[in-house]
Every structure is written in structure tokens, then in C-alpha cells.
Design a protein around this nucleic acid. Structure first.
Lengths: 127, 127
DNA sequence: CATATGTTATAGTTATTCTATAATAATATA
DNA sequence: TATATTATTATAGAATAACTATAACATATG
């Protein structure tokens, strides 16, 4: 069952719990701690581990599913998607736009932003 | 007073009103529709134009101020900040990380992401 | 059959967001 | 000086989102 999935939730974060789960699962995927085909723990199991309600985990799973990041097998278990889902990214583009605008308004130059993104990608790659 | 500030709010958006205002002001700045030193409309005035409560506008202004994007002059009016505020960006980096992780998990390659950011920057520059 | 799973439904609580008023202090303006 | 405009603070309430608690159902697994 599921690799040991490292998720830490912070109840004092301004970020909703379900988004914390969502983001940390994408992190686990991009750092190859989770790989294509890997099975996720059931929402009830993960909820118990994290000491939260299973509906909250479900909310994260639904968002991952909507974005094509995980898929439900006929075994009724969620797994990391095999395929590419680059067509699903309209909301992602919107987020990128907001992020870029914010950075520019803060005084970052175009180069600053690109270098920053490159640095982030490298640091993720080395995790 | 204040350049004609183009802000459109969408009450059906999933994004809170104050964030819509925040994001659109950063957009106006990065597209040079607002420039350093330009004065923003008072929170009451903008609230009336947008047909929302002035506290909501205030929330956006406070966030802009916290991020060093606008400053309050002794005239009691908010203006676009003159200086660079690149040191304020720790939350921005967190957002970038989440964005990059999400993109990687969706199947974007590193190059996809960088190209996407470059494309967004270009499109903003040409607005 | 018994268990584990996702899904749906209902209900309630808590937190966030948005609104509505009012008051105060500081600045600008007539 | 007096009036108006501004940000700020303080309350309070309404509306929405997030989180929790149970229960029930269908399906797949062992």
C-alpha cells in the first residue's frame, strides 16, 4: 500500500487543510517520492493518520482527481495518474498570472522571476 | 486623482473580492497602467465605484501595503511604492513552490513551466 | 459473508469573508 | 477657523467556506 507518504498539516496555517494536503501530494509527486501508478492511502486511513476528518482528505483527493493528477482504479483506490494532463491547466495559468503580476508589482524584474522559478525547480529536483 | 483604475469584480468568482482587487491592482502596476507615485482612490471611493463595502477594499489595500506594493503618504493617501521590495517575498516564494509542484504533478516538464512563465511575462508586457 | 473502499447525504460547528454603522484622529481645503 | 476627506478602529451581523460527525449505500476484495 502507498509509499510512506510524508504529509504534515499545520492547523495554524492560513492555508486550508485540504489545500495543504493537495500541495504536499503534488510535492511528493514532483520529488518522485510518489510515482506513476502508486496507490494513495484511503481517505479514511489518511484522515486517521493526520487526525482530521475523512471528508477533508476527500476534498483534497477530489481536487487532485479534477486536475488529472490522480485516477480512481476499478479497485476503488486512487493512484498517481500515468498520463500527461497538460490540457487541464487553465486555472494553473491564472495562478501563474497572479503570481507574476504580484512579483512585478513587488519590484522583481522579469529576470528575477525566471531565475526564481528556475531556482525553485532545481531545489525541488534535489529533494 | 488616481489614473482611471480598471477593476472588474466578479461576484461569482471563487476568489474573494479583496483578492480580486489585490490581484488587479498588481496587474495594473505590472502593465504600467499604474506607475510609481500614482495615487490610489480612497477606499470609500473605490468601494462606491465597485459597489462593495469599503472594508473589503481596505483589506486589499492592507495586503498591498504589507507587501510593500503601496505606501501611505502623510497626505493620508495611498500611492504606488517607489522602491524595490524584493525582500518581502517569502510568501511569494511559497506560492511559487506550490505552483511549480502542481505543474510538475500535472505532467509539465521543467521547460514547460519556464516557457509558460516567460510567455505570461511577455503577454503582460504587451498589455 | 465480512471488510474496506469511494460516494452521497444530512447536520452542525467554526472560521473567513463581506456588509453595515459609528466614531476618532489627522490632513486638506474653502 | 470650519468643513470635508481621509485612514483607522471598533462592533455587530449576515453570508459563505471549511471542517467535523454520523450514517447509509454500492462495489470490490479477501
Amino acid at each position: 500500500m502507498a509509499k510512506t507518504l510524508e504529509i504534515v498539516i499545520d492547523r495554524n496555517s492560513e492555508q486550508p487543510l485540504y489545500l495543504q494536503i493537495y500541495n504536499q501530494i503534488t510535492y511528493n509527486i514532483s520529488t518522485k517520492k510518489l510515482n506513476k501508478g502508486d496507490i494513495l492511502p484511503s481517505s479514511r486511513t489518511l484522515a486517521e493518520v493526520l487526525n482530521i476528518n475523512f471528508h477533508t482528505v476527500n476534498q483534497a483527493y477530489q481536487k487532485l482527481r479534477t486536475n488529472g493528477i490522480i485516477v480512481l482504479g476499478k479497485s476503488k483506490k486512487y493512484a498517481i495518474a500515468e498520463g500527461n494532463n497538460s490540457e487541464k491547466g487553465t486555472k494553473l495559468i491564472e495562478k501563474e498570472k497572479d503570481m507574476v503580476n504580484e512579483a512585478l508589482a513587488m519590484g522583481y524584474t522579469e529576470n528575477d522571476i525566471i531565475e526564481s522559478v528556475k531556482r525553485i525547480i532545481s531545489s525541488i529536483r534535489s529533494d
